[in-house]
Design a protein around this nucleic acid. Structure first.
Length: 748
DNA sequence: CAGGCCGTGCTTTTT
DNA sequence: GCACGGCCTG
């Protein structure tokens, strides 16, 4: 969307030209919202507002970077600070940490640490960590924090009478968890918002000082704000009511995370003098895409009526591709992309969206087989890898010696013969003495009941940690390198032929690279806390490469705010979109959110939009017939049953018995009607996986772990078929369920 | 006490 | 298919 000033529509111009007072910009997808916001920022600066009086807040890092980049483009030189909510709050809290009981060097905990901590607390509270999953407890605590309910309030509200035993458990765990956080001088994601909201609510002097400083505030994606964020924003817009919020209720997809769609719906009630601008013209997509998406979203009841129109050409109809199963689906997508690429499309023109990350694997494999370059914006982020987290934990502990999560993570990594018992004794003593874990380690001699060996190991650890400092190393990358060398962290993997170990070494290298990049970007400003904050608040999606000719795979949630010429939305089926969980809960609200999610996905497409569904799909290891998503009948699309050639063997897990069995069942090329129900297709096909040739009694097979062996027995039928194999190397004999084993034929 | 192996249980979405 | 926890062994 490159446009010149003159091309602003009347509505866009109204938003850009608005200066003082509250402003609500309701912006449909592709309506040029970012352009309006950046132009408005530029306009304000031009008219004499100092950039530091502006506060622009987005939801994601990517959106923040994009906005910053575009403002810089409009006005080279002017530095307007665009930040995410979490980053803004982190910065504010570092400045005023003491007011909420923290020190400025507090750690931002990741989800893994949080889970670990909750697990420990559950044990301490004599609650069964199996019956009460740490994750679910954490989810409830998070929900409370997003609704501005702190631990004390929660306890007071529910300790007398809890709605259920989960709530009763949270009554005990939540306050203990907050004590643990405080003792660790740490916060979780939600605390960043909650602490800030509390800080502003309880300290009017600070509140009005900040309110005064930020004369103009812009909040993007306002429909995704939760109560805490709402309160923060309104606390800063009392004196100067120049609050501009933009968003689209139809793209609210974070209700599950505490987002309150009401925040945007009631903006006009909160600010009766608000100017409302509607951006309803879509400049992104073809007529057929816009029409289809508009019809879909029209089925939502709880919304602000808004039309979505475009002057763009009609384009090709939205296409619904139906496949036999997820293997064919993946193969079909890859084939379709290949065709379109042959006709001139660039790989970076394509995006594949799915409801859940788990669906990406098949597509990745299909793309790999065809050597189609691609990237995945997936949950398994770089900073989630164990080896990366370990090294980061060293940095965290250096920055914040109270960081119990970091200490526990690395005190025995690499192994220093410090077992769980010794660690528990040390930590208990540290708590009693009011010491940080690191101080306690240095004084391990005083800890009761520690073995001599453990005392020595703890002290050696403490002494080693004392040797590290950013000042000495000069740069974060140098410090990380020192830590790697001094601890011998990578020694365990060096020289290993194991692919996983190689990958670990790669990741460690990549971390050093990331640190150098930070060092370079931050210059003299570089600090451990700066680097750590970045690693804590940045995710994989933020680093997606848009330029380098690659197909992009991501979840529907991650897709918001992006656009691609050709979009595939995977698995538009009952149970996926809408997700099983939204259906099970049976609430109309959740179903509408699922509809919005599909709406968001569809409206990312500029020229071509493909929705896909399969007849059967493997879910949790079981093959089940699928039901088309009810949303399909609410939109406009042209169905097409696609018969792909069988997916070729995968190179990574090589041909499995299951894959081979599938293929033999599928090789008949009988014509199929355009649309079939799952049942029809199942009836027509051979659902029983036959044992393929090459796995007869006495044939040679290879197992990735056990090596080559001989089939000595065969039993069972169909999916339950088993093979018993005696392996050559250690003469062990193993029985496998054929359709689920990673065995592959040798020879033949 | 550490490491490896095996079985179980689960799987939405993310700052 | 996966990761994690638990169990067992060395």
């Amino acid at each position: 969307m490159s446009t010149t000033d003159a091309s602003l529509t009347a509505a866009q111009a109204a938003a850009v030209d608005h200066r003082d007072g509250p402003l609500l910009v309701l912006a449909g997808p592709g309506s040029g919202k970012t352009r309006v916001v950046t132009r408005r920022l530029a306009r304000l600066v031009e008219s004499g507002v100092r950039p530091r009086s502006l506060l622009a807040i987005t939801f994601t890092n990517k959106a923040a970077d994009e906005m910053q980049r575009r403002v810089a483009q409009l006005m080279p030189g002017a530095r307007v600070w665009v930040s995410t909510f979490h980053r803004f709050c982190a910065r504010l809290l570092r400045e005023h940490a003491a007011m909420v009981g923290l020190q400025p060097n507090f750690t931002i905990l990741d989800a893994g640490d949080q889970r670990q901590a909750l697990r420990q607390i559950l044990r301490d509270e004599d609650l069964d960590p199996v019956a009460f999953g740490a994750e679910k407890i954490g989810y409830r605590i998070s929900a409370a924090k997003n609704d501005l309910i702190d631990a004390d309030t929660y306890r007071r509200r529910y300790e007398e009478q809890s709605a259920d035993h989960w709530q009763a458990a949270v009554v005990r765990v939540y306050p203990a968890y907050q004590r643990w956080l405080l003792a660790s001088n740490a916060v979780d994601f939600d605390d960043l918002l909650l602490h800030t909201a509390v800080l502003l609510a309880e300290n009017d002097e600070l509140r009005s000082q900040l309110d005064e400083r930020y004369r103009y505030i812009i909040v993007d994606e306002y429909q995704d704000t939760n109560r805490a964020q709402y309160q923060i924003v309104s606390a800063l817009s009392q004196i100067h009511r120049n609050l501009c919020v933009t968003g689209d209720p139809d793209q609210s997809i974070y209700g599950w995370r505490g987002a309150r769609i009401e925040n945007i719906l009631r903006f006009e009630g909160d600010y009766p003098d608000a100017r409302v601008v509607r951006l309803e013209e879509n400049f992104r997509s073809t007529q057929s895409i816009v029409r289809s998406a508009d019809r879909l979203i029209g089925h939502n009841r709880k919304r602000k009526a808004k039309r979505l129109v475009t002057d763009n050409p009609e384009g090709e109809p939205v296409s619904l591709l139906c496949f036999r199963n997820e293997g064919h689906e993946a193969e079909g997508l890859a084939q379709r992309m290949q065709q379109l690429a042959d006709a001139g499309r660039d790989w970076s023109d394509f995006a594949v969206f799915m409801r859940v990350n788990a669906l990406s694997r098949q597509v990745e494999r299909a793309l790999m087989r065809r050597r189609i370059p691609h990237q995945v914006a997936a949950g398994a982020a770089f900073f989630d890898r164990a080896e990366v987290k370990d090294l980061i934990a060293y940095l965290r502990l250096l920055e914040n010696p109270a960081d119990r999560a970091a200490f526990s993570r690395i005190v025995n990594t690499p192994a220093r013969n410090l077992g769980e018992t010794s660690q528990r004794r040390l930590l208990r003593w540290a708590n009693e003495q009011g010491l940080t874990p690191l101080e306690a380690a240095a004084r391990a001699k005083e800890v009761p009941k520690l073995s001599k060996r453990s005392v020595a190991a703890f002290r050696a650890f403490a002494e080693m940690m004392a040797e590290f400092s950013l000042a000495d190393a000069g740069a974060v990358a140098a410090l990380v390198t020192r830590i790697i060398n001094r601890t011998g962290y990578v020694r365990q993997w060096e020289g290993s032929p194991n692919e996983k170990d190689l990958e670990r070494l790669e990741n460690v290298k990549e971390l050093v690279t990331a640190a150098s990049e930070y060092d370079e970007a931050a210059g003299d400003e570089r600090s451990l806390s700066g680097f750590l904050e970045q690693t804590a608040l940045v995710n994989e999606t933020d680093s997606l490469d848009t330029s380098r000719g690659q197909v992009t795979l991501m979840t529907l949630h991650a897709a918001k705010g992006l656009e691609y010429p050709v979009v595939f939305v995977l698995g538009v089926e009952q149970g996926l979109i809408p997700h099983e969980r939204a259906i099970r809960d049976g609430s109309a609200e959740e179903l509408e959110e699922e509809r919005r999610l599909l709406f968001v996905g569809m409206t990312r497409a500029r020229e071509q939009l493909f929705l896909t569904q399969t007849v059967e799909r493997v879910l949790r290891g079981r093959t089940l017939p699928t039901i088309p998503s009810p949303f399909i009948s609410e939109l406009e699309c042209t169905p097409e049953y696609v018969e792909t050639s069988a997916p070729a063997p995968v190179w990574s897990s090589v041909p499995t018995l299951a894959a081979n069995g599938d293929r033999s069942a599928r090789d008949d090329h009988s014509p199929r009607p355009l649309l079939m129900t799952g049942a029809e297709l199942l009836r027509g096909g051979t659902s029983q996986a036959e044992l393929p040739r090459g796995f007869a009694l006495g044939s040679q097979v290879r197992h990735p772990r056990y090596g080559v062996g001989t089939v000595v027995d065969i039993g069972g039928f169909g999916q339950r078929r088993t093979v018993t194999v005696t392996f050559r190397d250690d003469a062990r004999t193993e029985k496998f369920v054929a359709s689920q084993s990673p065995l592959q034929p040798v020879g033949h």
